[in-house]
């Protein structure tokens, strides 16, 4: 797979029923293997929208996104679904857990879908839950855990996919300092293994995440493009 995991060029995102109002204008960004990019910007700047676009879940008003070298807009639905399965793991700002599943099944679900190996996926999920300090809650369901535990379970779900590109929206929200450190260490480890991380956060990043490249929305920075 190409070293450039995410290559987004001139992304513009607009909302509004009475006429599209641009929220994000001409953003170009790239994430490579072994790289952490911190997406910064004030509330409402469009960080979450950008992450959704990069995850292939929302089409931009204009601009193009390549995930793992695949042009998402031009790809067929099946190919797009494959990219979502195999290239990207996305942590939403309010990450949902499926209420009917216990925590370990929730965490194992994306890996089950991607690889179809249920037992292996559940084993990995337990390992990640244990590591992020939610190991005692594997049999619990969404309504039985706290907000911080839910956030860590959702992060475990992203990390358990083994996807090369991790898109994380506010991963440190609801977490205390000790847990922030644990999560950051886990993310840093993934980066060392060759993953690329794009995270949006309004809080300062912990020290465990070193050599983070900053990207401020509203202050476009030229990036080297893989687009022809």
């Amino acid at each position: 797979m190409t070293a450039v995991l995410l290559d987004a060029q001139n992304i513009t995102i607009s909302y509004g029923r009475l006429g599209p109002q641009p929220v994000v204008r001409d953003v170009s960004i790239a994430v490579r293997r072994g790289q952490i990019v911190h997406l910064r910007g004030p509330s409402g700047a469009g960080k979450s929208s950008l992450l959704r676009v990069f995850a292939g879940l929302q089409p931009p008003q204009s601009g193009g996104v390549r995930l793992g070298g695949v042009d998402i807009a031009a790809a067929r639905p099946g190919e797009r679904a494959r990219v979502r399965r195999e290239v990207v793991a996305y942590l939403a700002q309010d990450p949902p857990l499926i209420a009917e599943f216990d925590l370990v099944t929730n965490v194992a679900l994306p890996a089950m879908i991607a690889r179809g190996r249920r037992r292996e996926a559940r084993r990995d999920a337990r390992v990640w839950l244990e590591r992020l300090g939610v190991g005692a809650r594997t049999k619990h369901r969404r309504v039985e855990i706290s907000g911080g535990e839910l956030r860590r379970a959702a992060i475990a779900r992203v990390l358990a996919t083994g996807s090369p590109l991790l898109l994380m929206d506010e991963p440190f929200a609801d977490l205390d300092a000790a847990n922030i450190a644990i999560v950051a260490a886990a993310m840093a480890e993934q980066v060392c293994r060759g993953a690329g991380v794009l995270l949006a956060s309004h809080v300062p990043l912990p020290a465990e995440l070193e050599q983070v490249e900053m990207y401020d929305i509203g202050a476009p920075q030229p990036v080297e493009s893989t687009w022809p």
């Binding site: 879940l57 494959r82 979502r84 399965r85 994306p110 879908i113």
Partner: peptide, 16 residues
Amino acid sequence: RQEMGLLVSFGFGPGA
């Protein structure tokens, strides 16, 4: 809806 969106983000096609 949110759960269905989650399944799509995990790699299911909306058709599925």
